[in-house]
Design a protein around this nucleic acid. Structure first.
Lengths: 187, 187
DNA sequence: TTCATTTTTAGACATTTGTCTAGTAGATTG
DNA sequence: CAATCTACTAGACAAATGTCTAAAAATGAA
């Protein structure tokens, strides 16, 4: 059973509505380093991560600058591109083998029109996402790199176990060299 | 005529619906330095800025760290507090005399339930806000302070004319001292 | 206008963070 | 197993940014 199904069941969808929702999603598999979204191309899908981890990044001066990682049981989207239907500024690729239940913008709109409760779900998804990004932006302005690292250590320990430190470093807006310093200081 | 009325007219509301929407808002006036939201108190209102500018900030080590400024003709909200109904982490205060058309969360819910098109408006407000915050977060991670300043110079010149540099500095996540350096370098 | 207050700039120095480089340890592959 | 690759750490130095302070410039009030 797909995780996306469990998710929609858990928030109260059932019967025909649930079936219609699940039909709108299509499972897609990715090998490590496969691209989900490529810079410059408009991303017409969002999705629900079934397995694996997906790294959002841009290439700058030849280096990857990661600024987000999607993990299992969360929604995935290249927000700006998907919502505003403009070419993506970022790449998204699989950090390990994984799979995403993908839904096209067309299907999303269809569900929004046909299932009233789906609109409420979408509103709350947007609200939760908004809070998350807002909090993260707040941290970037208000906290030091060391405080951000400690917060990640406390709130998202799974990231530290699974994601290469070099990627976490750019999520914290520091270099790998500096993250190493922060870690040795805390130890 | 209030700007909030023009706004809702412009996006296609009219007649009874428009009237119901406008009745849900209540104009509130603020003197310079008045608080709209206080840290620690749950913010149960969002609003539409009619006049003035409103600064979002936290106090840290005795200093104000600004991370956003709302201006005329845009929506205002202490996002996290309003959406999740938790005590606000931030203060919002009037930078100059101004006014906001305020709507309570209760009234917002009422409009969402009673006017189908209002739900679509709210979805698109959330989407636009999400894109804005996402882009801003992207900039904080990917751009240097100097690049962020130049972008502000280009995209939001009104801020530079109206908002004290000390506040812009913290929005750019640098000290006033450093912003001064950036400015003198560009000159 | 004059005085007081706030805002902005900038010098001098300290601290933080980045760059470049190299080395080690662990994983992966043939 | 050896060979290679990748991730992580860290030294040495450079650049960016912060702290503290003072003075000039702009703003507001009497």
């Amino acid at each position: 059973m797909l995780k996306v199904e469990k998710y929609f069941e858990a928030i109260g969808f059932a019967g025909d509505d649930l079936q219609k929702i699940l039909n709108a999603f299509k499972l897609e598999k990715f090998k490590k380093n496969d691209f989900v979204v490529e810079e410059g191309k408009t991303s017409r899908y969002m999705g629900f991560v079934e397995t694996g981890m997906f790294q959002y990044y841009v290439i700058q001066d030849g280096e990857e600058r990661t600024y987000y990682v999607s993990i299992e049981n969360t929604f995935f989207a290249s927000v700006l591109s998907f919502i505003s239907e403009t070419p993506s500024l970022e790449n998204v690729k699989a950090l390990v083998d994984g799979s995403i239940s993908m839904i096209s913008k067309t299907n999303l709109k269809m569900l929004l029109n046909e299932i009233p409760a789906f609109k409420d779900f979408y509103i709350s998804l947007l609200e939760v996402t908004l809070c998350g990004i807002d909090a993260s932006r707040y941290d970037l302005i208000v906290l030091t790199a060391e405080q951000r690292y400690e917060k990640m250590l406390k709130n998202e320990p799974h990231l530290l176990q699974q994601i290469p430190l070099q990627h976490l470093a750019s999520m914290l807006a520091v270099t790998p060299r500096h993250l190493s310093r922060i870690r040795s200081k805390i130890r």
